[in-house]
Computed example of a mutant assay.
Amino acid sequence: MQLPTPEFTFHHGGVSVPNLDEAIRWYAEVLGFELERRFHINAANADVAMVKRGALRFEIFAVHGALPLPDDRRYPPSDIKTHGNKHVAFRVNDLEEFLRAVQSRGADIAFVVREKFGKGCFLRDCAGNLIEFVEENN
């Protein structure tokens, strides 16, 4: 007999970066996240920060000796050609307003899509990690 799936909710997304202080600053200045806490994970030799914006959380890892993000993982159409986790996506009410705001903060806009089913964009954080923002058509 198969058991019912227990309830669960989203807790956080995570990214690896080369410089934790730079990433904390980027997520604050570009996307409005604030530092919730910092800690170290001995088993991974990682300095970690949890940043928060409302109910949204992002975990940022700076792992000593980590390899840099490969170039093909920095552009959405090439990134999806490699198996594995791709990105986290957030909903925005107005993509054009969002784009103007993040551009004014120096965001690196990697890709913009405007289709009948909806609009979206991908930003690269300070380490090149892709983050998607979506405006849905109802």
Rank of each mutant, 00 (worst) to 15 (best):
M1P: 12
Q2Y: 07
L3I: 09
L3P: 05
L3Y: 06
T5D: 11
F8G: 08
T9V: 12
G14V: 09
V15Y: 12
V15K: 08
P18W: 14
A23E: 03
A23F: 06
I24K: 02
W26R: 04
A28V: 00
L31P: 00
L31D: 00
L31Q: 00
G32P: 01
G32H: 01
G32F: 04
F33P: 00
F33R: 00
E34A: 10
I41Q: 13
N42Y: 01
N42H: 06
N42W: 00
A44T: 10
N45A: 07
D47Y: 03
A49T: 01
V51M: 01
K52R: 15
R53N: 06
F58L: 15
I60V: 15
A66F: 02
L69M: 10
R73V: 00
Y75T: 10
D79T: 11
D79K: 12
K81P: 05
T82Y: 11
G84W: 07
K86S: 13
V88F: 07
V88D: 01
V88T: 10
A89E: 07
F90W: 09
N93Q: 12
L95Q: 04
E96Y: 02
E96P: 01
E97C: 04
F98Y: 08
L99P: 01
R100M: 03
R100T: 11
R100A: 11
V102T: 00
Q103R: 14
S104F: 04
S104C: 05
R105D: 02
A107W: 02
A107P: 00
D108W: 04
V113Q: 13
R114I: 08
R114L: 08
K116V: 09
K116H: 12
G118I: 05
C121I: 05
C121M: 07
C121L: 10
C126N: 15
A127R: 13
G128Y: 07
G128R: 11
L130A: 11
E132S: 06
F133Q: 09
V134Y: 12
N137S: 10
N138H: 14
